[in-house]
Structures are given as C-alpha cells and as structure tokens.
Amino acid sequence: MAADKSEVLQGTLDLMILKTLHALGPLHGFGIARRIEQLSEDVLTLNEGTVYTSLLRLQQKSWIASEWGVSENNRRARFYRITKRGLKQLAIETENWERISGVIGRVLALEAKVEP
C-alpha cells in the first residue's frame, strides 16, 4: 500500500538528512538535496520538495535547529544543523538500521544457499 511505502521512505529520508547534517555540518535544503542525490547515485529519485517536509518534521521534534544565513553564492538561505537530541536520535536510529539490515541481509543470504 502507498501509505506503507511512503512511511518507510519517510523514516529513511529523516535518517539520511540527520546523518548528512551530522557529517557535513550546517547545510541549507538545497545542499542537503545535492548531497543525497550524490550519494544515492540515481538509485533513489526523490522530489526535492519532500526534503522540506522532512526538515519540518525533524525540527518539530527538536532534532535539528535552523537559522538564517548566507549561502556560498550570496543568497539568503536557512541553514539546518543537528542538535544534541538529534545526535542521540541518530545514534539510536543508526543502531536500529544496522540491526535490521543485518537481519535482512542474513535472511537473504540464507535463502540463496537453500534454493538451488
């Protein structure tokens, strides 16, 4: 169902943004979109607007904070940075993600051996 898909995507996008801000420091929405585009290597196509939905969500949870600044080409832009609460959350989510992907990886590996 459509709702489930977007939910997975939502969570993933939130995690990706948190990690990006953690790794690169304060960034504006455009920068975040570029970074994700770069990393996903066209595997993940995304409407860049949804980045902002995710940013709002993260901000409401106080995981990131924002302030106005000037971009590299002298434009006024809102810069987002990760907060202490965000760092904590990132640690939790990373661990979760690794656990789950580990499990899934093992399950898939298991299937490959039995099938042939």
Binding site: Q60, N73, R76, A77
Partner: peptide, 27 residues
C-alpha cells in the same frame, strides 16, 4: 512546536516561500 507555529503563521509561511524560491533558483 505546532502550538508555537499557530501564533507565527504568516511570517513562517513567507519564510518558507523564500526558502522554496531560493532552492528553485539554485536548482
């Protein structure tokens, strides 16, 4: 946060519009 936003409605809407426009221009 939502409650706070209730009282800052118009200013935040304008700021978001700016943010989106900047993004589109850069893109």
């Amino acid at each position: 946060a939502k409650l706070k936003a209730l009282f800052l409605r118009s200013s935040d809407d304008a700021a978001f519009k700016n943010e989106v426009e900047a993004h589109l221009e850069m893109l």
